[in-house]
């Protein structure tokens, strides 16, 4: 939310994330029921469907001893490269035909990428998190559409579908880790790094979000090619193979 509840909401979501990550790392709750990921009426893409991979919106942070998040642009740059490579490879494996966007096209389509990030956060909170946060009007279904705003992506790329990815990942610095250990001995848990990611498959003719997944965990790394590939695998783990 923007003006009125922003601070509160972010405090809440931070608490929630922290609690969730901790809970997840303690017990291996398997989370993902298929219906959570799929829009009503959608089961899989047709084989050879053309999918444009939108420029992933990625940001890596380091958390200092005092708990301040610092954006690490150099890590981010490298991680973005790893993620794009893995998205291409993975979409081949899943039976899609992927299309790339030029930098110029990506510039022109930046606003829709920004819009996706906002919508993805709402889906993550109101649909995946659900519970008290579910939107009653959505009836528990993955029922979000980016609408006609996606038209220009189809016109630019010729693709019928688009895959959007948004990831934020943070890493505790050495001093932060030391602080965590020290406080843990006193019975106080403070958050280390955690990874939050969203991925959406969007129908470029209707704007409908056909498939969505959220990643939220205290593990994972994007700083090496192998670990970044693992993160992408995990993010796309519920993605239906083309039929």
């Amino acid at each position: 939310m923007n003006t009125l509840t922003e601070t509160r909401a972010s405090v809440c979501s931070l608490l929630r994330l922290t609690a969730l990550v901790t809970a997840l790392s303690l017990s291996s709750i398997a989370f993902a029921a298929a219906s959570l990921n799929l829009a009503p009426g959608f089961s899989s893409l047709e084989k050879g469907a053309t999918v444009v991979i939108m420029p992933p919106d990625v940001e890596l942070f380091s958390i200092s001893g005092g708990g301040v998040s610092e954006p690490k642009a150099d890590w981010t740059e490298t991680a973005t490269g790893y993620i794009i490579n893995e998205l291409r490879r993975k979409s081949d494996v899943l039976g899609m035909k992927n299309v790339a966007l030029s930098e110029k096209d990506a510039d022109d389509l930046a606003e829709i990428n920004t819009l996706h990030a906002a919508v993805a956060q709402s889906i993550a909170l109101h649909h995946f998190q659900g519970g008290n946060f579910s939107l009653p009007t959505k009836g528990g279904q993955l029922d979000w559409s980016l609408g006609e705003a996606v038209g220009p992506i189809h016109q630019t790329s010729g693709a019928d579908y688009a895959l959007f990815v948004w990831i934020r990942d943070s890493y505790a610095s050495a001093e932060r880790k030391a602080a965590m250990v020290a406080l843990a001995m006193l019975g106080v848990g403070i958050p280390g790094g955690f990874q939050v990611g969203y991925a959406s498959l969007v129908n470029l003719h209707t704007g409908q979000i056909l498939w969505f997944n959220r990643l939220i965990r205290g593990t994972g790394d994007l700083r090496t090619a192998t670990d970044a590939a693992e993160t992408v695998q995990e993010l796309l783990s519920q993605f239906p193979r083309s039929q």
């Binding site: 939310m1 923007n2 003006t3 009125l4 509840t5 601070t7 509160r8 909401a9 809440c12 906002a118 919508v119 956060q121 709402s122 889906i123 909170l125 109101h126 939107l135 009653p136 009007t137 979000w144």
Partner: peptide, 27 residues
């Protein structure tokens, strides 16, 4: 006409906040 969702967050006062698409989309 048709239902809305009210975000009952402790920090929103003095306004009431409703949404159709979610907290980060519309208010």
């Amino acid at each position: 006409e048709g239902a809305w969702n009210q975000l009952d967050f402790p920090g929103v006062k003095p306004a009431q906040v409703w949404t159709m698409e979610g907290v980060t989309v519309d208010e």
